[in-house]
Design a protein around this nucleic acid. Structure first.
Lengths: 253, 253
DNA sequence: TGTTGTGAACGCGTTCACAGCT
DNA sequence: AGCTGTGAACGCGTTCACAACA
């Protein structure tokens, strides 16, 4: 992946697996909910259930951060919230720009979960001159011409691309040129970026296609079950019942 | 993950790895672009570059589908488009409902990539009576009360949840109760569903937090490099330069 | 000659199961 | 007695490298 390669041999201990990183926000959300209910401690079992993972995985994940639990007791909620927040870099403020203020861009700008966790929408940028100055979610839209200046003035290192596919690479190049090193891409295109820049993508149509694949398979199985219908009902598989409940994880390159 | 477990021992050959399934839409997109430019064939190398993966991975992925290439030549674009579409179940029409027509729901309803590939927005549903009847993206919004009837009348098996977090589980339960077996969840909550129902989630705030983690790390490395500044400039690691260029991939739940 | 298809090696992530603390 | 922390086993996915073949 484009994820900033580690360069140095790594001092060991600073090696949190990517899969673990992807789950930390999940744990943090569950912990925050517990914190709001003033729950003082949780066991790995309870927290895992709330986050939708299994407890062994959760414990191993936490073990990469350090030994923050107490044997026989569980984890201190407040303390864990702090540790994970710190690990994720949420104790600092991250100014973010959103480029492309169409339906989606506007929705993102209005999204509450943004401000809540260390992220601040520093600016909205659109190529349409007619949009310029118009406030969206209380923030005036600025024109693409000023992109570089906006990035630099606000010290932005995270950019969100919500433009049409055709404009995405160009916007990406300008963002990167202006100093952005992390990009969240909603446009249905593969972005190419220099080494050291992280890209994560969110793609509605890909998600739907993956669902369709499984949906189709289910339909096929139903048909097969219909065929086996009249049969003496042997152990027909009963939907297997795996431990269930994994969570998607956007994997890096 | 909640992804439909395979039940039966699997006839072998029907075993396409989940990671491969997640990349098929990517290949399909690249192939569609080539097709529009009337390119007749591609090599694994070219196609892989367009899709942002490496060629060995692409060839192995295709090998799970069958032997659709020609040695010494490459792959026939049209043929591959068809094969992948069929494999993903896109040769049929998938009616989809979107629940929660706020900013995001409206953006999704307006999203063009929907209709393009086998998906059709069959209905928009919202809990706000004031929205009822109002058209969004040309489709009249219907009230939540009629959810079950809408699902059944339209034969919907894929639902998109774009409600606030608080309403998501309840909406999910009703969708599943009405027969939906695949859910794309935009609400920031862990949904619990019975076995056999697939859930994929798209979570802006999680994505940003993952980016923040890497961003923070980069800042840390810069600081370390500053420390090494005055030094005689040994091989300072030169960003290692791995084969580079992968792309994130949203993994299933 | 050029490119696919794939066995084999490898590495990462998950799960198991239990030793180690409280 | 209870729950965490983790070594070890396992399985999936990626990468390598080359044989097969048009």
């Amino acid at each position: 992946m484009a994820t900033g390669r580690t360069h140095r041999p790594a001092t060991r201990s600073r090696g949190i697996p990517e899969a673990t990183v992807a789950r930390l926000p999940l744990y943090l959300r569950a912990l925050t909910a517990l914190s709001e209910r003033s729950v003082p401690t949780v066991s790995s079992e309870e927290l895992a259930a709330a986050a939708g993972v299994n407890s062994a995985k959760l414990r191993k994940d936490f073990s990469y951060l350090g030994s923050y639990g107490t044997r026989g007791v569980g984890y201190d909620v407040e303390y864990l919230v702090y540790q994970i927040s710190r690990e994720l870099g949420l104790t600092q403020d991250w100014p973010v720009v959103i480029v492309g203020i169409g339906n989606l861009g506007a929705a993102l700008a209005n999204y509450g979960g943004f401000a809540s966790r260390g992220f601040r929408v520093a600016a909205l940028i659109d190529a349409d001159p007619a949009m310029a100055g118009k406030p969206v979610a209380g923030i005036p839209v600025q024109h693409t011409d000023d992109l570089e200046k906006i990035i630099q003035d606000n010290g932005v290192s995270i950019g969100v691309i919500a433009t049409p596919a055709g404009a995405a690479q160009q916007v990406c190049d300008r963002l990167v040129g202006a100093g952005v090193t992390s990009i969240l891409n909603f446009a249905p295109t593969v972005l190419s970026v220099p080494d050291g820049v992280d890209v994560r993508k969110v793609d509605l149509s890909i998600e739907l296609q993956i669902l369709a694949f499984h949906e189709q398979r289910k339909a096929g199985e139903e048909a097969m079950e219909s065929l086996a219908e009249g049969l003496p009902a042997t152990a027909k598989g009963s939907t297997d019942q795996g431990p269930d409940g994994d969570v998607p994880a956007v994997m890096p390159a």
